[in-house]
Design a protein around this nucleic acid. Sequence first.
DNA 1: TCCTTTGATTGCAAAATGCAATCACTTGCT
DNA 2: AGCAAGTGATTGCATTTTGCAATCAAAGGA
Lengths: 141, 141
Amino acid sequence: MTQTSFRSGCPINLGLEVFGDKWTLLIIRDMMFAGKRHFREFPASDEAISSNILSDRLTMLVSAGILTRAGDPSHKLKAIYSLTEKGIDLLPIIAQISRWSRSYMPVDPVLAATGEARDKGGPGAIDAQMAELRRLHLGEG
Amino acid sequence: MTQTSFRSGCPINLGLEVFGDKWTLLIIRDMMFAGKRHFREFPASDEAISSNILSDRLTMLVSAGILTRAGDPSHKLKAIYSLTEKGIDLLPIIAQISRWSRSYMPVDPVLAATGEARDKGGPGAIDAQMAELRRLHLGEG
DNA sequence: TCCTTTGATTGCAAAATGCAATCACTTGCT
DNA sequence: AGCAAGTGATTGCATTTTGCAATCAAAGGA
């Protein structure tokens, strides 16, 4: 009985059951845009995630197949988190959330700049960033 | 002091602070794809939202400017919820969540069909559905 | 040896969720 | 007029999740 029971088979619902909370996509954001790969890097963001929630979400994301966890060869206590293709493919969702917020919410202009540049670049800009993420995170499989 | 204090001015975060939970986007989904406009229609969905949470989210969505609430002229107790432009503009986010789930989650094929058709129609299909939602929800302002 | 860094875990208060029952009011039917 | 059904919620209460600070064991660096 290791089967998770979902509330429904609706695609919208299934996505929300995985990342429908206030923290999960911020972790993905930090990995994608700030290059964070180590546990202790995440609480440094403005939203200041606490370590218990961070630990919970990282474990969930690994078990969901969105991240992988590997040991750092140089430091035995250090873990390196990487995006999988499933994780990298969250970028279009994040880009749309960014676009929506830049239209309707009081965003910080400095933080909005990266999203504006991406929009200006068209669909090709997202594809390019996804290709770069594949290089960084799936480099040697 | 009616100002909500956000965790940060990051566009991703600001979106999550509004709809980053397991229910809000399902309500929007039901309005967009099932044409639901009345309180008692929502709990009929597979996920079976309970009335206290539904009430809380509808109030929040109205105060966030994503929905409007109007009385039904024929029934004094009946309320009609409508999407605003800000709400209609959530469709591209929902479409991306749908696309991601159809790639990576065990979606119900019947429920996935509408998303597949939308993808097959390209960006024009989303624009067309948004135009139709404007007609239905913003018809007479 | 001791101090720092690492990825967490623990304890506890506060908030959110989930579920069932109930509410005040209106409508439709007879 | 009377009464059942339908309306958008609210209430009470148990469970779960969140938020915050302190702490942990293992490893590395000096």
